[in-house]
């Protein structure tokens, strides 16, 4: 029950503070609800934690991709490149406004890339932190 209340509170918080409603905000709101359900002490997403996530060398996933920066370059504002040589548009929302607006794509790429880089799927907290960081970039 406490957890349910927290989820409700998180959603209410989103509803009241999100002036800019849109598909990205909806994705973040769902992640907030998930993060609250995962951890009762959840107190919001953090762009700073997202930045750490983006730039860390995990070395726990596939050896070819120790970090997000292996393909996305060291700055979210810059173009990246896949290992097969294909350019990747910047993941900073300011540079590529359609980033994190398609729930299916978001789900697919977090699943693939978290498994490749970290060796496991990401938590809702990690996903929310990551998107929050990219929204500030």
């Amino acid at each position: 029950m406490k957890r349910l209340l927290l989820v409700g509170a998180a959603l209410a918080l989103v509803a009241t503070t999100n002036v800019q409603a849109g598909p990205r905000e909806d994705i973040v709101a769902l992640l907030m609800a998930e993060a609250s359900a995962e951890d009762a002490a959840f107190a919001g997403f953090s762009g700073e934690r997202g930045q750490i996530l983006f730039s860390s060398n995990f070395n726990t996933g596939k050896p070819e991709t120790p970090s997000c920066t292996s393909c996305h370059s060291t700055s979210p504002q810059n173009m990246g490149e896949t290992r097969a040589g294909k350019p990747i548009e910047p993941i900073a929302v300011s540079k590529t406004p359609e980033r994190f607006t398609d729930p299916e794509k978001v789900e697919k790429w977090f699943r693939r890339n978290c498994r490749s880089v970290i060796g496991r799927e990401c938590t809702a907290l990690e996903k929310g932190d990551f998107i929050t960081y990219m929204m500030s970039q």
Partner: peptide, 11 residues
């Protein structure tokens, strides 16, 4: 799940 060193899984 291990497509030449990357996870390329699909539905």
């Amino acid at each position: 799940e291990d497509h030449f060193g990357e996870d390329a899984s699909l539905s």
